[in-house]
């Protein structure tokens, strides 16, 4: 099976999680992930710098990226915090659920992932316009495994129905779908193969299922590094050395 596999939404005890970064990394190694991102809820760049120094202290065989999960109160708050944190985080994840926040996140090219747009909603939190915007601005729509794990019976079937709708919309509009654990403890983490099996049971082809945990997160990471490189000027425009051909 083609890798490498990424899980970009894991919370440590630095915010809402229950386990330390080291424990999460050890579990990820055991479950055969190639890279993970510690994406804690952060308020400012100082939080990110602190988490980054914690990550640097740990010696691991897998790549560990720094993510920032933003739970904004309103659209203005979201814009402000994305602008402040973009420079310091590898990945920007927006905590979805509110329709205005979902819409604004899809409109912002600085955002990488819109997490659980359906959270605490009766509808799926996404329409065809938002899906098209997400495609245009390279915002991936997340399928959060934690929401499935933490629900049962009727509630789980409703969550699955919303995910199925979002998958359909994203496939139709060309938006990327990313599957993340959303883990808050080591017991919320599963191996990459389990996510693929789960997505297959939801009607996704095996190739698309693999993409959601390999190609899509990989492209997010690559784009983040590209944007932060010195040669980057603006989307579609970068500085090229005289000897380098484009």
């Amino acid at each position: 099976m083609e890798g490498p596999f990424f899980d970009l939404d894991i919370q440590s005890d630095q915010s809402s999680g229950k386990n330390s970064i080291k424990e999460l990394i050890n579990m990820a190694q055991r479950l055969k992930w190639d890279a993970i991102a510690i994406s804690d809820f952060v308020l400012n760049k100082e939080d990110l710098i602190r988490i980054k120094s914690e990550i640097r202290k740990i010696d691991s065989n897998i790549d560990v990226f720094l993510g920032a999960k933003i739970k904004a109160e309103n659209v203005k708050d979201l814009e402000k915090r994305v602008k402040n944190l973009r420079e310091y985080a590898d990945i920007i994840i927006v905590h979805g659920g509110e329709l205005e926040i979902n819409r604004r996140a899809c409109e912002m090219p600085e955002v990488d992932i819109l997490a659980h747009p359906e959270l605490n909603r009766k509808d799926s939190g996404l329409d065809h316009v938002m899906a098209r915007l997400a495609h245009t601005n390279h915002v991936a729509i997340e399928i959060n495994f934690e929401n499935i794990l933490s629900t049962h019976r009727r509630m789980r079937s409703q969550v699955l129905a919303k995910y199925n709708r979002n998958i359909l919309l994203c496939q139709k509009m060309g938006a990327s779908i990313i599957c993340c654990s959303g883990a808050e403890s080591i017991y919320d983490m599963r191996s990459p193969r389990e996510y693929i099996s789960f997505l297959q049971t939801q009607g996704m082809s095996i190739d698309r299922a693999i993409e959601t945990i390999s190609k899509v997160p990989e492209s997010i990471i690559r784009r983040a590094y590209e944007v932060r490189s010195e040669s980057f000027i603006r989307p579609g425009l970068k500085r090229v050395d005289s000897g380098e051909s484009q």
């Binding site: 499935i148 794990l149 389990e194 099996s197 789960f198 297959q200 049971t201």
Partner: peptide
């Protein structure tokens, strides 16, 4: 296999 694997993971 895939169905049962998914169910086990839950």
């Amino acid at each position: 296999v895939e169905n049962v694997r998914a169910a086990i993971s839950l």
